[in-house]
C-alpha cells in the first residue's frame, strides 16, 4: 500500500518537474556506476599529483563489494575543490604536501608498500596535515558521490514518512 502511494507521489513529482527530476530520484535504479564528471574548470593537479591523490584515496576507501574512491572519481573531486573552492593558500599548501609525499618515492612503491605507507600516515595523522586534508576530502568526496551515496550507503531521497525500523532491516547508514 505504502509503496503504491510512494510510486504515485514520484510519478506526480515527475509530472510536475519534468524528466530531469526523474533521473535524480531514480538514480539508484538507472544511473549507477558513474564517477564524478569533472568540469575541468581550474584543474590544478599535474599528472603526478593526480596519481598520488588517486592512489591514496583508493587505499583509504578501496574497492570491496562496492566500488572505491577511484571509481567514484574522488581524486577528480579533490582536484576540483583545490582549484575552485579552496583558498590559494590552502590549495598551494596541499599541493606542496602532495609533492613532498612524492619525494618519498610513493609512486614507485608496490601496492602493499603503498598501503603500509598510508597506514603509517594514518597512524600519525595528528602530525600529517596533508594526509589529514586528503582523508577528509576523500571521505566527503566519496560519500557524496553517486557511487558512495547509492551503492555504498542507503540513498533515500524521498523517504515518504518517518518510522522506526530495526537497523538490521537496512544494514547500512543513510546517505
Amino acid at each position: 500500500m505504502e509503496d503504491i502511494n510512494r510510486r504515485d507521489i514520484l510519478t506526480g513529482l515527475t509530472a510536475m518537474l519534468g524528466v530531469s527530476a526523474l533521473s535524480t530520484i531514480h538514480a539508484n535504479a538507472i544511473e549507477v556506476g558513474f564517477g564524478f564528471k569533472p568540469s575541468g574548470k581550474n584543474a590544478i593537479f599535474n599528472e603526478q599529483q593526480m596519481k598520488i591523490v588517486e592512489l591514496i584515496a583508493n587505499i583509504i576507501i578501496p574497492d570491496t563489494d562496492t566500488p572505491g574512491a577511484s571509481k567514484a572519481g574522488v581524486h577528480l573531486y579533490i582536484d576540483h575543490m583545490a582549484g575552485n573552492w579552496m583558498t590559494k593558500d590552502e590549495a598551494s599548501s596541499l599541493i606542496k604536501g602532495i609533492d613532498k609525499i612524492n619525494t618519498d618515492k610513493f609512486t614507485s612503491l608496490n601496492h602493499e608498500e603503498q598501503v603500509v605507507f598510508v597506514q603509517n600516515l594514518d597512524d600519525n595523522r595528528d602530525k600529517e596535515q596533508t594526509y589529514n586534508t586528503l582523508k577528509s576530502y576523500t571521505v566527503v568526496g566519496y560519500y557524496t558521490s553517486e557511487i558512495g551515496s547509492t551503492l555504498e550507503l542507503n540513498y533515500d531521497p524521498v523517504p515518504g514518512k518517518y518510522e522506526e525500523i530495526p537497523f538490521d532491516s537496512v544494514g547500512k547508514v543513510w546517505a
Binding site: 582523508k135 558512495g148 546517505a175
Partner: peptide
C-alpha cells in the same frame, strides 16, 4: 552517519565497513 568517518582512524576495507 558517514560524517563520523572524517575523524575515524583507519584505512581500507575495515575502515569502509
Amino acid at each position: 552517519g558517514w560524517n563520523d568517518a572524517i575523524k575515524r582512524e583507519g584505512i581500507g576495507a575495515d575502515f569502509k565497513n
